[in-house]
Design a protein around this nucleic acid. Sequence first.
DNA 1: GCCATCCTTCGATCGAGGTCGAAACATTTC
DNA 2: GAAATGTTTCGACCTCGATCGAAGGATGGC
Lengths: 238, 238
Amino acid sequence: MGPQPNIATSAFLIGDPARAAMLVALLDGRAMPAGELAQAAGVTAQTASSHLAKLLAGGLVKVEAEGRHRYYRLGGANVAMALEHLASIAPSEPVRRKVLTLEARQLRFARCCYDHLAGRLGVAVTCVLQERGFLEPTANKQFTVTSAGAAWFGGLGLDITKIPASRRGLARQCLDWTERRHHVAGPLGVKFTDLLCAKGWIRRAPSSRVVEVTHEGWKKFEQEFGLYECDLKAESRI
Amino acid sequence: MGPQPNIATSAFLIGDPARAAMLVALLDGRAMPAGELAQAAGVTAQTASSHLAKLLAGGLVKVEAEGRHRYYRLGGANVAMALEHLASIAPSEPVRRKVLTLEARQLRFARCCYDHLAGRLGVAVTCVLQERGFLEPTANKQFTVTSAGAAWFGGLGLDITKIPASRRGLARQCLDWTERRHHVAGPLGVKFTDLLCAKGWIRRAPSSRVVEVTHEGWKKFEQEFGLYECDLKAESRI
DNA sequence: GCCATCCTTCGATCGAGGTCGAAACATTTC
DNA sequence: GAAATGTTTCGACCTCGATCGAAGGATGGC
């Protein structure tokens, strides 16, 4: 069309309910075959195929053939970010007053966003790290690790200097679409989440984005972060 | 319908080329009247009005009536962020901050809005007058001149009691579309601007709305208002 | 080779919504 | 009060795209 970047075309692609449902289903970064996406969107396989072809052409998804399946995944982190930001302006109206399923509540409480911790727990941890002066929000949606923070992470077994920063930095502010606040993404977020798993504080559910906190984990979260299970769960009505 | 709410509806609204063009035009935070948005989108006023009504219902824009214009602006920072992220998906280019021409920058800095002073300078002067207790914002988008204010204006050579109030009052709060804050309009605003011209502090460009501050004027603005040229121009780097 | 499964392409239908002309409405100016 | 300007509403047209049935490919199992 014109010289303007066609922001409209991307938005148009997301603007269809069926396509939006597929994209949301892919939000956690997993790849899904076309058939499952069709089911997730509530349309026939033909229709889903048509939609996926358009999303592919628009760069919103990538595809990988595997035998007779074709696995689709989001086109990139920027796509996921755009989707989460769109969700943040969605009217999320009283219509949603309906009771959330157990998994939905678990997702809101703690989940993986790509490979880092998100949800109420992820945001709470991020807040504590900022309150204690270990992380500082800086321009360009980044977090800076303070010297105190580097020491603290080191005590936990995470050598900050050994984490390679990606092109988008070491620690990014990622908007949490349920909490509408930021949590820590980027290489630091990933390594930190891996560490919590390795220590047995949290456990990732086998085939979903849900993250569970172990009994041992709650003791540690209380001890290290001052986060109490009852407080966090009280607000999320789990 | 899917479990996820209306991420699709927001995206659908942005997905129309005309609506996207309007939103992009508003990306810098300015408020614009419906007519200008229609022109920016390349559609007629009727069509633009229809689009704006939908954007308004979706919460993507807000509106403020000002005289016979209706100024639209983005619904919030989250809307701007979502738009920027959507633009980052489009392969063409990063967010395009339009490079403003010299006149556009001058207009933002100081201009006449009808017959009174507007732009960064107009807003700054209005702020100082309020801080010093000479003007007080009151209901119905009016300013009230305090007794201290009347004395101060008198000392400058402006007898408030001799200015006839129009049907809409003596001093009106006029929304500044570049600064998004109020400046002084109405008969007082006109007379005050005339006075600054007569004193040679400012000079109106012959065939545009641009207002220039004279060398003498900057000394006076510093002396009378505590406004420094470098401070005001430093922030207008847009 | 033959069938089952998974996915895409083709063709046709059909409804939603973008567009503009005309007119109503609102506000300012003369 | 009348004219001018900015904006919205109404009505009608008409294109675009979502949808699904049917058929065509591709892959794996037997």
